[in-house]
Amino acid sequence: MEALARVGEMASLRSDEVLARRSGLGDRVAFAELVGRHGASLYRYAVRMLDGDHHAGEDAVQEALTKAWIHLGTFRGDSALKTWLFRLVANECLSARRRHRPRPVDDQTLTEVPTNQGSAPEEVTVATDLRRALDVALVELPWRQRASWMLREVEQLSYAEIAEVLQTSPAVVRGQLHRARANLADRMEQWR
């Protein structure tokens, strides 16, 4: 047990780059450390991108981590590991949304319709707190705006990293973020 604990302690000191390399060589302790380090963030992102569906979020993260485990042996570190993991999760979320196709959404249409139709602050406050109010507001955002805002403001990725995750350009990310901030500010108006 002591030896195992030492192995775990050692893993926690290692950089993502080293853990990724060791995972690629079949080191499960290293991969466990990576999952411990990034799993909660990946799950948080997946659940918000899948409209709060925790089971769908769990499936998306599991699928993404499975692909990571299988392909880490060929991961060359061209991007940061965190960025790569978010890209895998984003792809799984997109696939899940395509499978379910809840309703056709047009970014522009939603952007132009300010929503004050959500719960009143009192109701939200009673049921939850500011974070939950944000969750409610996020669900109302178009997918790309939501993804850009989550990755920038919550996960603190750079514009270039977000562009890589969402497979678009930093300029598009900048535009989506601008609209997301405006829409969220509108939806969170009662919390000023």
């Binding site: 999952v35 799993g39 909660a40 799950y43 948080r44 769990e58 974070r131 603190q156």
Partner: peptide, 30 residues
């Protein structure tokens, strides 16, 4: 400021469901 505060709270938040299933997800993945 409101959005920054909300984002900060979300960043610090760990979903309970993830805490419950993390080990199971890991065991399935490997």
């Amino acid at each position: 400021a409101v959005l920054r505060s909300a984002a900060g709270r979300l960043r610090e938040h760990v979903d309970e469901r993830w805490v419950e299933v993390a080990d199971l997800v890991f065991s399935r993945v490997v």
